[in-house]
Each structure stands twice: as structure tokens, then as C-alpha cells.
Design a binder for these strands. Structure first.
Lengths: 258, 258
DNA sequence: GACACGAACCAATTGCAAACTGGTTCAGGA
DNA sequence: TCCTGAACCAGTTTGCAATTGGTTCGTGTC
């Protein structure tokens, strides 16, 4: 094509040409999608089968990724799938949620105490106040403000992964099926205790006392768990969509490579 | 319609008829999608506007949910959205991942020690052995087996929410962009240490020693973090897709209700 | 015989238009 | 005043054609 240069074979030629083309593309901010194989083969003056051998090498090296029906693209293959929230909500149950929260949220309170800006503390105090002022209001807005409070602490903790976890828990809690359970779990007395515990968490964070913040959050969540436990043992059946399936194994082993 | 019965108005009639229809539907395992409003209105012999008022009541009561273009459905509105993995991978970074793992995985090892069946222990031992036998193999399969090991512990811990978290972390670690970093982070020496630590975790779980399992896992992850830290401070720039955006706030306040 | 080319076919995805469905507005009638 | 009918808007699904990577086969060239 370019002149008198010779190659071991046509495959070698196609591979070299493709590397040049990839360098040009990756340099500019152009489209990450390459032309279709048929076009590319015609442009390089080689057969499609030959071109595909070259593309296989480039894909194995991680320079491109391909997908049937989509096309050929520069760069690494994007992450697949997203976490299915509905499926997660279906196979968990309130006590499991509380167990998970007890493992994570105290740590988040500790990190928040170490990393909160003064503005963050202001916001947390405001949210705690909000949960107090509407303690007698409708349960919907009460739950939402409570969720906002816990999310805010996770946000202040400054770890996007841990925040994502709290976010997931919060969204599961918003499932309408779970709301009825929570309504029963919140007596005026326990609600008052929860509000007080919220303020204690904020106070510890404001004092930059990491250990106290962790302890206060743990104390709060244990109170919530006790409340949930009390309701669930009062012979009240779980809502259908929230029944646990603890025996079911989520994955087997997922054999890597071969 | 049915005879000489009289109703306060047409709206009342439509609402009562719809409640009857809902009871019939929810009793049988029939489709959860109701006929379109136009059909329903014709069947009941009322106007569409009247029918819609009845549907609004039923929706507010939580018996049905509607969505433009989709239809009207029985039961509670399904949870919205799923967690976007790619977005999460984009805005996190290796040290943040290690911080999150250090908060969660030791707790999972503790729970695993309390809940593992003998078969589970067998499987964990096998996986630990696997990471050892291919310590000198290709880094791809090594990483996959390591991921399988940590996932298995999360699975044995028996909390589907915490398992989902480890699952997310594992998938993020599979991002091709992160692999290059990990390859550099694993010297033969550190790799040998990691394998030994894996066995220590399994031994503690097998001995049902919850505190020891938690401590062993923490020790292991701290070693991994040290390794990551060493690499990242060697003036090696982060891959482009893994750059942190710590300053960016994920949410503001998400005002609940009104 | 080994390799490359061309053609054809399969399978997954995209794009688009039509049909469908809930959301809304408006004029007319009991 | 309330209900009906019609029309229109907006979001969704469905079916179909075109596109694209994945694969197989026959032919030609060295």
C-alpha cells in the first residue's frame, strides 16, 4: 500500500496498519467507535478474515473491545451490569438490613467525625433538628428525613463506596412494602429516643470525637434493631415481598479463566 | 348496571366497581397489568375522566401504580433505578476502595467464623489453596481467584446486603484499567505474604474463632493497602478512568415530601 | 498444502416508525 | 355542577429493517 515495504504475510501487514490507526484515533478526542470490519478491511485492502485476526490480537492486548451488533471500540471494555435493587430487596429482610447497617454506619460516623467540615456539621445538625420537629408528623416525611440524615453522615464520611452502600439501604427502606412494618415499629416513645440519639451522633461529630461518634451511632442502630425485633416477634407475618431466602446461595464459585 | 342500586354519583360507582375488580385480580395469579383506561372505562360504562378519579384513589391507597406509556398495575410500585457500577468505578480510587474493604471485610470474616458450615470451610480452604498454587501464574487468573476467595467469605457470612457490597468491589477491581495497577502492586514477596494471610483467615474461621478471623482479615487487608500505597506513592500516575473526584458532592439534600 | 479472499449466513444490537397507554385540556350536554 | 366524549401530548412498547460482529464454506493464489 505504502510502497515497496514487504511483510511476512498479509496478517502482519493488517496488524501493523491497525496499530497505526489506533494511535491516530487515541491521540485525538475523536469517536471511540471504529468503522465496521467490512469497511476497515476494504480500506486496508485485506480480507475480512485477515483483519479479524489483527483485531483479535488488539483485543487480547486490551487496546480495543468488540461486541456483536454494536461494533469495535477503543479502550477497555466497560463494566457490565448494574446492581439489581429490586432483586436485592426481595431476598433480604429487615433484620439482615439492620445487621449490615450496624457493621457499616458506626464506621461512617467515625470517619465523619474525622473529616466533617464546619459546613457539614451545620447541615447534620439541621437534619437532626428536622427529624425532631416532625416527630409527630406523617410517617412518610419522617422516614425520608431520617434517611436523609443517615445519607448525609455517609456523605460527610467521604468514601463514595460506603456512601453507595448506605444509598442502597436507604432505597430499599423506601419500598412501600417495608413502610408498613416501620410504621408499626415506631412508637412515640422510641421515636423520641431516636431523635435524641441523632443529636448525640451529631454532637460527637461536632466535637471531632471519632470514638464517641462511632459508639453513638452503634447505640442508635441497636435501638432501632431492638424496635424492629420487637415488632417482628409479635407474631406479625412479614410482607410477601420481604420474605427472607437465607438458604439460597447467590453464587457458586464462578470459575475464573479455565 | 347491576340493577336498582343507586349511588351518590358516577365516581362512587366507578370506585366501587374497581375495588371489586381488584379483589378478583389479586386473588388469582393472573397478570398484574390492568386493561388500559379507555377499555376499563368502556367496560364500566363510565367516562375516562371518572374512571381516572377512581384510579387516583386506588393509587393513593397503594393498591395500584400507574406509569405513562406503560399501563396500570396491581401492587406496590417497584423500586426504581439500579446502582450504576461504571459511574461508581469512575469516581472512586484504589485507596478509597481499600478503606471501604477494611471497614467491611473484617466484619464479614467474623460473621463467617460464626456461621460457616463444614462444607463452607472446605470450600474456603480450597480457594485459599488455589490462590497459592497459581501464585506464580498469570496475574489475570490470580486476581480472579483472589476475588473469588473474598466473595466466598462474604457469601458464607450469610448477609446478602454485605455480600452485594463485596460483589460490587470485586467487579470494580475487574476493570481493566485497575489491573495494570494491581500487577505492579504484587511483587513475588508480597504475593507470598498474601497467600499466607489467606490461610490464616481460613484457619481462624475453621476454628470458629470470630475475633481471630476478624483480626486476620484486617491484617491481610492492611498488607494489601500498604502494597497499594507503596505503588501509588512511587510517582506513578493513576489511570485516567480511576482518578478521584473527592470534592464532588454526590447529593445535596434530597428534600423529602415538601 | 497453506493462506487469503469473497460471499453468504447467523446472531446481537441499533434506529425508526407505528401503535399503545397514561396525562391533560377543552367543548358540549344532562 | 358534574359527567361525557373527543382530541391532543408525552412516555413506552413492539415490530421491522438495517447494521455489525461471529462463523462457515468454496475458490483462488502462491
Amino acid at each position: 500500500m505504502t510502497g515497496g515495504e514487504t511483510f511476512a504475510d498479509s496478517s502482519d501487514f493488517a496488524l501493523r496498519q491497525m496499530r497505526v490507526l489506533l494511535d491516530q484515533r487515541s491521540g485525538s478526542e475523536s469517536s471511540r467507535q471504529l468503522p465496521p470490519e467490512r469497511t476497515l478491511a476494504a480500506q486496508l485492502g485485506v480480507g475480512r478474515r485477515t483483519l479479524r485476526r489483527a483485531l483479535e490480537v488488539l483485543e487480547a492486548e486490551g487496546h480495543i473491545w468488540r461486541h456483536q451488533g454494536k461494533g469495535t471500540f477503543l479502550g477497555p471494555r466497560p463494566l457490565r451490569e448494574e446492581v439489581n435493587l429490586a432483586e436485592l430487596a426481595r431476598r433480604t429482610h429487615p433484620l439482615e438490613v439492620m445487621e449490615a447497617r450496624l457493621e457499616i454506619e458506626p464506621a461512617l460516623a467515625r470517619l465523619a467525625a474525622l473529616r466533617a467540615s464546619n459546613g457539614d456539621i451545620e447541615r447534620l445538625r439541621h437534619l437532626a433538628q428536622k427529624t425532631e420537629s416532625i416527630a409527630d408528623g406523617d410517617s412518610d416525611s419522617r422516614e425520608l428525613w431520617d434517611g436523609a440524615f443517615h445519607r448525609a453522615i455517609a456523605e460527610v464520611a467521604g468514601n463514595s463506596l460506603l456512601f453507595a452502600f448506605v444509598d442502597v439501604v436507604d432505597r430499599i427502606r423506601q419500598d412501600p412494602t417495608w413502610r408498613r412494618l416501620r410504621e408499626r415499629a415506631r412508637t412515640p416513645g422510641s421515636q423520641h429516643g431516636f431523635v435524641h440519639q441523632h443529636h448525640q451522633v451529631v454532637a460527637a461529630i461536632a466535637a471531632r470525637d471519632a470514638a464517641a461518634a462511632e459508639q453513638a451511632m452503634r447505640h442508635h442502630l441497636e435501638a432501632v434493631r431492638t424496635s424492629v425485633l420487637r415488632i417482628m416477634t409479635q407474631s406479625s407475618p412479614l410482607p410477601t415481598t420481604a420474605q427472607a431466602e437465607p438458604a439460597e446461595r447467590l453464587i457458586s464459585e464462578r470459575s475464573p479463566v479455565a
